[in-house]
């Protein structure tokens, strides 16, 4: 009978390796001096100016946005500044509803994606699966198929899937997942890149830890839950970010499968502003609102994200 497994603190996490290697690299970095900092400042400015422009423009009327384009005023909160565009956003789009939908869909997709993809990667990394090298290759090969080629057949397929519905007459099976939350989540839970990333990370965790756990009576699932996953924080963070971003940015798929406004995500909402007379200030206000959660997520996970990318040798 298996007993609780008590393990020593992680010893071989690649994140630690990455941290220690960063210490050794500190000396050459210091030698970069003023030039290095200048380059960094320039890059920071280049990458942050579009965001700054977006935020500042969200406070200006349309005519002023375009009037300021030829000068630095485009990046400064000067002139006729107000929150009118934010108020107008809520008048044009059910923004709160869209935000709630996107948060819900993205969080569930990420949570289920972490569990299922890590389980698949764990099986391929640790268990004796015949032809697992070929299986992993096939999984990775699916990355070359663009989603656009699968979209229409997928619409047909999800429209054939059985669905459980409850109404005043009781529980009934209906056909078709169109216009539901699950159709925005389920097709995107399994992710070839996430499986690959978890697999690469799990490979770097010494198998001796598994054997030690086995000696203490742990089964595969306990090893996965108590040994491998606790050591895989950076990989989990990376997969969380890489799964969250496409879920948050999802546009084409919801357009095709969601017909009811109450179920739409944020990205579809941005099209609400493109009328014959486009409201640019409102677009900037709405863009600011839907960009903030992504920036917050990245800031929260950036250290783990960078560690994981560095340790798995994967470039974004």
């Amino acid at each position: 009978m298996a007993t609780d497994v008590h393990l020593a603190p992680p010893t071989a996490a690649p994140a630690r390796t990455a941290r220690s290697s960063s210490r050794t690299a500190r000396a050459p970095r210091a030698r970069l001096g003023i030039l290095g900092w200048l380059v960094r400042i320039v890059l920071a400015v280049v990458f942050s100016f579009p965001l700054l422009f977006m935020f500042v423009s969200s406070l200006k009327p349309d005519a002023q946005i375009f009037g300021d384009l030829a000068s630095l005023a485009a990046f400064l909160p000067v002139g006729n500044i107000s929150l009118d565009n934010y108020a107008a956003v809520f008048d044009r789009v059910p923004a709160a509803r869209f935000l709630i939908n996107s948060v819900g869909v993205s969080v569930v997709t990420v949570a289920l994606g972490i569990v299922i993809n890590s389980l698949a990667a764990f099986a391929l990394s640790r268990m004796r699966v015949p032809g697992k090298g070929l299986i992993l290759t096939v999984i990775i090969a699916t990355l070359i198929i663009p989603f656009e080629t699968l979209a229409l057949p997928l619409v047909w397929w999800v429209n054939q899937l059985p669905s459980l519905s409850v109404d005043e007459f009781g529980v009934a099976f209906t056909r078709g997942w169109l216009d539901t939350y699950q159709v925005q989540i389920v097709p995107f839970i399994v992710n070839a890149f996430a499986i690959y990333l978890f697999h690469q990370y799990f490979e770097s965790i010494p198998k001796e830890l598994d054997e030690a756990a086995r000696m203490d009576g742990a089964g595969w699932f306990r090893i996965y839950r108590k040994v491998v996953m606790p050591l895989s924080g950076p990989a989990i963070a990376t997969v969380a970010i890489l799964t969250f971003l496409p879920a948050w940015n999802s546009y084409l798929w919801p357009l095709m499968v969601i017909q009811t406004e109450e179920l739409r995500p944020v990205m579809v909402g941005i099209q609400y502003f493109y009328q014959l007379n486009v409201s640019w200030g409102e677009i900037m206000a709405y863009s600011t609102m839907i960009t903030l959660p992504v920036i917050a997520l990245f800031i929260a996970f950036q250290r783990s994200f960078i560690n994981s990318i560095a340790s798995t040798g994967v470039k974004g």
Partner: peptide, 8 residues
């Protein structure tokens, strides 16, 4: 077009 392909 998507709705037409799904008969919806």
């Amino acid at each position: 077009v998507a709705a037409a392909s799904a008969g919806k």
